[in-house]
Design a protein around this nucleic acid. Structure first.
Length: 753
DNA sequence: GCGATCAGTT
DNA sequence: CACAACTGATCGC
């Protein structure tokens, strides 16, 4: 639970995400996202009275948050007082004390937070410095570096304080499966069930909260089935969500809810009440997306846990692992950019779509560290002190990442102070600030990472970034580059990085129904001559994760924590023993074979952590045909050519909307429009430049490229399903390339044939 | 009766 | 473990 009381030291006259007590006196309110624990007091009579007595006090939030909030009748009284602010559009707000007439100007910028639809972070600039309130945020490593408006003059802004979501600021939560792994796990479980017959349905046992939408939309898109929900009117202006939802119960995917849902389920009844279709009884499994904690485990953990005959728990909202950052940061970048200027509505469908992909992730301590050390504020205020730890411990972790601890930065910063004082002037002074004052400071050169170049070399020592990387990079954008891909590539699902994992899983998972799952075909790779060493490195859970991901806890615990996909809840056995049943994606008929056989189903090793973004795969590679569901970037936006982002940026900083406290928006300059036009431009240009940048990434020093003959041998072994023991060179971990068989096996250790 | 709070549940 | 919501009991206005 958040210990943030609503007010920030620098700007105590505004309140964020708290609306009770002291906050009743605020001159302006801000809501970062629509979760109840951030809305305390928001509909209390006391605040309602305050509103009635005031002419000027308003609530500021993103357009999506406004929409979601006003859907509830209980918040309708806010209707005339909610001012939505576009994402990434610096907006000036006058903070007026209605009693004294005293006035203060502040500029706020909303930055996408990736937590749930509409969720944002607030960047405030004013007389008391620049501060960042993160709210609940779920940003991947390096994401801060791609946020233009956190930067000025090519480097990160001088930020006085960060009010930080430290939910996972505990070193034991290093290792959590990536969002892609979880999504893929759920997808394959759903696939394996609903493909059996039209009478096989899944019930997603989700809580009543925003943030599951990306799961619904991805499932819907993947299977061409709308998801049944109780209510969808809140999404009426968000077609990208709306189109994937239905209130028609006749679908195989349900996310409806009922207080007695669990009870219903015992009786093969869905929350919406149905038990049969065409008088034929339904076969139902429940999947409960929930947080699973992987940090403390030393053994492999699982993405799907079987908790009963027909019940599963699915790891759902998880942090962006290192590999995920690498695999899908383009998507995120897209999200960050396209989410701006109308994340929500039909004018920017692409924005919302992409934004959804990155919703509801959890962040881990290394991501917090990455974020904070990049921002490098003077102060940090943890918003959350997780149970079992203390404020002091959290600060201990965070403090070294702040400026006072950075030896490169002088502690005394008179000019920095001066600079901050000046940033609030909305004319052209920011430019001078950066040029003049910052240069006087031996500040750590925290250069903004251009959007197309988001890799952090120091955390990418990976040998897996091979010659094929540029190709992969492009593919991971899915819809953006699909047109340029030869059709035969789609047909064969050849894909430099993702295909490794995807093909693996689809051979295992997808073949029974003869569906579109790709087949593992290393020999048919587009690039022909050079085998993909990622193919076997990545399936090597024991060694690869450690050496690829550079995650401290990986080595600390010795073994891989890469999750297995399925297991029983005892966590001991994966029940993935039968090759035949595994590969046929067979799930036993409920009741006919009992639950042991049912648990034989699954089969995807999620050890391929670098498999990239499953969602973009679905669009760009797997399922080009359903692309009508994915709004393409606005064509006219794509024509813009690449320009120097830094210089853009300076001018951009001067573009500020003025919001009188009464709530009317005045656009001061053409800045906002510029902003929106340029964003996709960076996006589209990123494809190429990123490819080339990836290309240049060096291998880990101690890593060697496998020799051609060696690879050939490995491929042959893989193709025949035999196990391979790869003796790494000295200094590297002993690692075993796991074959599909051994992945499927209960105990892969037995496969030393 | 409504809302706040807390404990317990999911 | 934590999240985020819900339920029910209790208390105060």
């Amino acid at each position: 639970m958040s210990c943030f009381e609503g007010q920030m030291a620098e700007y105590p006259t505004i309140s964020i995400d708290r609306f009770d007590r002291e906050n009743l006196r605020a001159r302006a309110y801000f809501l970062s996202h629509c979760h109840k624990d951030h809305m305390k007091g928001l509909r209390a009579p006391s605040l309602k009275r305050r509103l009635e007595c005031s002419l000027k006090v308003c609530l500021y939030c993103s357009p999506v948050t406004k929409e979601l909030l006003l859907t509830s009748p209980k918040y309708r009284f806010w209707e005339k007082r909610i001012v939505s602010i576009e994402i990434e559009t610096p907006t000036q707000i006058s903070l007026v004390d209605e009693a004294s007439g005293e006035k203060e100007e502040i500029v706020v910028t909303l930055l996408p937070a990736g937590h749930c639809p509409g969720s944002v972070m607030f960047l405030f600039q004013g007389n008391n410095g620049t501060v960042l309130y993160t709210g609940d945020f779920r940003l991947a490593k390096g994401e801060a570096a791609r946020m233009e408006l956190l930067h000025s003059g090519g480097r990160v802004k001088d930020i006085q304080s960060v009010y930080l979501d430290t939910t996972f600021c505990n070193p034991k939560y290093y290792q959590i499966p990536s969002r892609e792994e979880c999504l893929r796990g759920i997808m394959e479980l759903v696939r394996s069930w609903i493909s059996r017959s039209p009478y096989h349905v899944v019930w997603l046992n989700c809580k009543a909260a925003y943030g599951y939408e990306y799961l619904f939309t991805n499932l819907s898109e993947e299977f061409g089935l709308q998801v049944h929900v109780d209510k969808l009117d809140m999404f009426r202006n968000m077609p990208d969500i709306l189109h994937h939802l239905t209130t028609d119960r006749d679908t195989q995917i349900h996310a409806c809810r009922h207080p007695k849902a669990e009870e219903y389920f015992q009786w093969s009844k869905l929350p919406c009440g149905i038990t049969s279709k065409n008088r034929i009884p339904l076969h139902t499994i429940s999947i409960k997306p929930s947080t699973m904690w992987f940090g403390e485990r030393t053994r492999k953990t699982n993405i799907i846990m079987r908790t009963g005959e027909s019940s599963y728990r699915a790891c759902f909202s998880f942090h962006s692992s290192y590999s995920e950052v690498r695999g899908s940061h383009r998507l995120r970048t897209s999200a960050a950019f396209m989410a701006s200027g109308g994340i929500s509505f039909s004018t920017a469908q692409g924005g919302l779509w992409l934004f959804l992909k990155k919703c509801r992730e959890d962040i881990s301590v290394d991501e917090i560290k990455d974020f904070l050390s990049y921002i490098c504020p003077v102060n940090v205020y943890p918003n959350v002190i997780p149970l079992g730890t203390t404020m002091d411990k959290v600060k201990e972790i965070l403090k070294p990442l702040c400026r006072s601890s950075q030896s490169t930065e002088p502690k005394y910063k008179p000019l920095g102070k001066l600079k901050r004082a000046r940033t609030m002037h909305l004319d052209s002074e920011e430019e001078d600030d950066d040029g003049l004052f910052d240069d006087l400071l031996p500040a750590p050169l925290r250069h903004k990472v251009p959007n197309q170049l988001t890799l952090h070399p120091e955390v990418f020592p990976t040998p897996a970034i091979s010659q094929n990387q540029p190709e992969k990079r492009r593919e991971s954008t899915g819809c953006f580059k699909a047109e340029s891909m030869p059709t035969f590539l789609w047909a064969n699902f050849i894909d430099c990085e993702e295909s490794n994992s995807e093909s693996e899983e689809s051979e295992i998972l997808g073949s029974a129904q003869g569906d579109t799952g790709p087949v593992f075909q290393p020999q048919q790779r587009a690039d022909g001559e050079v085998p993909q060493w990622e193919v076997f490195f990545k399936r090597d859970a024991e060694g690869t994760d450690d050496c690829l991901e550079n995650l401290p806890s990986s080595t600390e615990v010795g073994g891989s924590q890469s999750p297995k996909l399925f297991s029983d809840s005892d966590g001991e056995s994966t029940h993935i023993s039968s090759q035949a049943s595994s590969q046929s994606t067979h799930i036993s008929e409920q009741g006919s074979q009992g639950w042991d056989s049912q648990s034989d189903t699954v089969l995807l090793s999620s050890q391929d952590r670098n498999s990239g973004d499953v969602t973009s795969l679905n669009k760009g590679v797997y399922r080009p045909g359903i692309k009508e569901n994915i709004p393409a970037p606005q064509p006219e936006q794509n024509v813009l050519c690449l320009k120097d982002t830094c210089s853009d940026f300076k001018s951009r900083d001067q573009d500020v909307n003025i919001l009188p406290s009464a709530g009317e928006t005045t656009t001061l300059s053409s800045g906002k429009q510029m902003l929106q036009e340029k964003r996709p431009l960076t996006l589209s240009s990123s494809a190429d430049s990123q490819s080339s940048s990836d290309f240049e990434i060096p291998c880990t020093p101690e890593a060697e490229l496998p020799k051609q003959e060696h690879l050939q041998y490995l491929y042959e072994k893989l193709a025949t399903g035999e196990s391979i023991v790869v003796e790494k060179r000295k200094g590297l971990l002993h690692s075993k390339a796991t074959t599909k068989k051994s992945i499927l096996s209960d105990t892969s250790q037995n496969h030393n044939r």
